[in-house]
């Protein structure tokens, strides 16, 4: 039971972290926002004046539009893939013998904590040009006739991203399955529902919030992903974060890079907040 205290009384416990966060998170973010309004020249470097030039460029130059659109497209497909495969897998895990379940949870959730570079490297090896393992396998089982280019394509980025994000989806659906009363399923079956009906009419509606919140997480992380699109997409297939990186470390146009980054941040925060709202309103009673 939380006791009511004045903010002053709890200050000693919270002050160190709060000060650190203000000094090293809030201030840098504000500085970045300001940076996006400075001007930059090849020879002058950063000039601390006030201009909306960077923002105008970001919004009018079709190159930036393309990049943001690609970011959106990749994130949406990665999210769909993750939801489509992660949801049934979580349900299968739930119904598994506990001994096996423990092992497979480790196998499926474990990659979450493994280096993204190492995992993406794995995909680069699998894709590896037209003669990559992935293509050989797909052609071997007769799914495709001619090799699909994976490396340096959006398809490849989406697949690798879906892999990187999959554990988040499984985890989220898994958590909502944990809250499910197993007797409810039995009750539905006792009333004569088939397995398919039970899943569609009983299980799915109850775990929908888990799928949706998992999707929000996966989408947000995909939209801000960096290493995977950089390695699989290569230098030409840019997404928002690799674009910002380029402006910062190659072109050295920091103000423009800052504008791209701030726009990415705003877009992601807006999408997260808006979809959270939607999900919570729609499923208020399920969340309680």
């Amino acid at each position: 039971m939380a006791e009511r205290r004045s903010p002053i009384a709890v200050a000693p416990l919270l002050l160190p972290a709060t000060l650190l966060f203000i000094a090293v998170l809030a201030i840098p973010l504000i500085m970045t926002l300001m940076l996006s309004f400075y001007s930059w020249g090849q020879y002058t470097g950063i000039v601390e004046d006030f201009t909306v030039e960077n923002w105008v460029e970001v919004f009018t130059d079709p190159y930036f539009g393309d990049v943001f659109l690609r970011t959106l497209r990749i994130s949406v497909f990665a999210t769909l893939l993750a939801a489509l495969f992660g949801t049934p897998e979580a349900y299968i895990l739930k119904r598994m013998d506990p001994r096996w379940r423990g092992i497979f949870l480790l196998v499926i959730l474990g990659p979450l904590l493994m280096s993204v570079v190492a995992r993406t490297l794995g995909w680069a090896l699998l894709f590896g040009g037209n003669s990559g393992v992935a293509n050989q396998l797909l052609m071997g089982i007769g799914l495709i006739d001619s090799p699909i280019p994976f490396m340096f394509t959006e398809t490849g980025v989406v697949i690798a991203l879906a892999h990187v994000m999959m554990p988040f989806m499984v985890l989220s659906v898994w958590a909502s399955l944990q809250r499910l009363d197993p007797q409810v399923e039995n009750a539905a079956r006792s009333l004569g529902a088939s397995q398919a009906t039970v899943i569609r009419r009983v299980v799915l509606p109850q775990i929908m919030p888990g799928i949706l919140s998992g999707s929000i997480i996966v989408f947000a992380l995909s939209a801000s992903a960096f290493a995977t699109p950089a390695i699989i997409g290569g230098r030409r297939l840019k997404v928002a974060s690799t674009l910002a990186y380029d402006e910062f470390l190659n072109t050295l146009d920091w103000p423009l890079g800052a504008a791209v980054a701030v726009l990415l941040l705003i877009a992601i925060v807006l999408i997260i907040v808006a979809s959270n709202r939607l999900v919570e309103r729609r499923y208020a009673e399920v969340f309680r």
Binding site: T32, S241, Y245, F248, A261, L264, L265
Partner: peptide, 11 residues
């Protein structure tokens, strides 16, 4: 996004 954090901290 970590890119944003990176940029903010770099600045």
């Amino acid at each position: 996004p970590h890119v944003v954090l990176g940029i903010a901290f770099l600045r």
